[in-house]
Design a protein around this nucleic acid. Structure first.
Lengths: 182, 182
DNA sequence: AACGCCATGTAAGCAGTTACATGATTCA
DNA sequence: TGAATCATGTAACTGCTTACATGGCGTT
């Protein structure tokens, strides 16, 4: 498990509240680790109890107060120890691939419906790629001399971009195959 | 959730016992849906209760008896209905990307350890790619005229191959970035 | 007046992992 | 003799999802 560790990394990059973390997980971190706000608050509470993070109350006007978390020394040690552990094999769960193989056992109407779904799915990921590329241009301009942290964030983003490009190409292949049935 | 559906697809492609299913999930299906034998037996039992699959006792000599499952009409209907549902967004959980971003907060010794881990991970996936390519050559020879099912299985396998190639390229980029620290 | 955003949670339930258990056969 | 493969499970636990809950502020 690594939600704790993803939170530690995110808070080291920039301290923030549970709500802010949830938004980051929707955006940048969500590329490689998804989590809902409910889950984040629960884990954050446990991390606070275990002294991995410390909270600071921040009063705001015009907005609800919030609790901003930072990583403690203990938290840093926990992260360091985790970084030295072997990388866990991913638990792959790819809905669409199951459906594509399942399409062999459905009738033409079903395959037509699946084609529509794949097209929708493809459009979603095309948009995602566009957003990644815009984010890259914004956050990692060519002329800048990046810090270590920025270089590592950038290479992770390039991974997301490479994944989306690969996915779009593959979806085109899938569509070609599914259309042969028509 | 879709383990049920992955099992239905697998049993439609070829009826089999819980044990055989577990082996398939280790091999081909595991590319896009992982599951352990414990989980498979539990789900299979529920599917049998709900009449999605039917079992046939098969006595074997020299080996324990087994229960071979096939998909019932109800099971087929369940699968068809599921194929018509929207594709669920994937729950991404990519350990390694978290570690790469976390490496910015570790010392050189820690980054050196991570480099070693990434190399190991890369070697694993290179081997996986080799196995995919061997499987492709074996199961989908150029000259054959494939059935619909085979064509769809093939396009899913090509997805796995494209993914592994993309991953290997990306891991090389990651290694380049991590080594700049040294 | 209604909707969306900011901000934080509780509670119930299910899916999935890890550990444990059994027992026969085949092969090195 | 020991390890690997075939074959099927139970039990405990953890992580994650879904649904529900509250309340103020800003915008249309």
């Amino acid at each position: 498990m690594a939600l704790e560790h993803a939170i530690l990394v995110s808070l080291l990059e920039q301290p923030g509240s549970g709500y802010e973390l949830a938004r980051r997980f929707e955006r940048s971190i969500g590329r490689f680790w998804t989590a809902t706000h409910q889950q984040i608050y629960r884990v954050l509470k446990r991390m606070e109890t275990d002294d991995w993070v410390v909270a600071r109350e921040v009063g705001q006007d015009g907005r609800p107060d919030k609790r901003t978390f930072s990583v403690s020394d203990t938290g840093r040690d926990v992260l360091t120890a985790w970084l030295r552990e072997p990388v866990q094999p991913e638990a792959v769960r790819h809905d669409l691939a199951v459906k594509v193989r399942g399409a062999a056992f459905d009738d033409p109407a079903g395959r037509a419906a699946l084609i529509g779904e794949v097209e929708r799915y493809r459009a979603e990921h095309e948009e995602l790629l566009t957003r990644y590329l815009a984010g890259e241009k914004r956050d990692f301009p060519d002329d800048a001399a990046p810090t270590t942290g920025q270089r590592l964030q950038h290479v992770v983003l390039r991974g997301g971009i490479a994944y989306e490009r690969m996915l779009l190409d593959w979806l085109d292949e899938v569509l070609t195959e599914l259309r042969k049935e028509a």
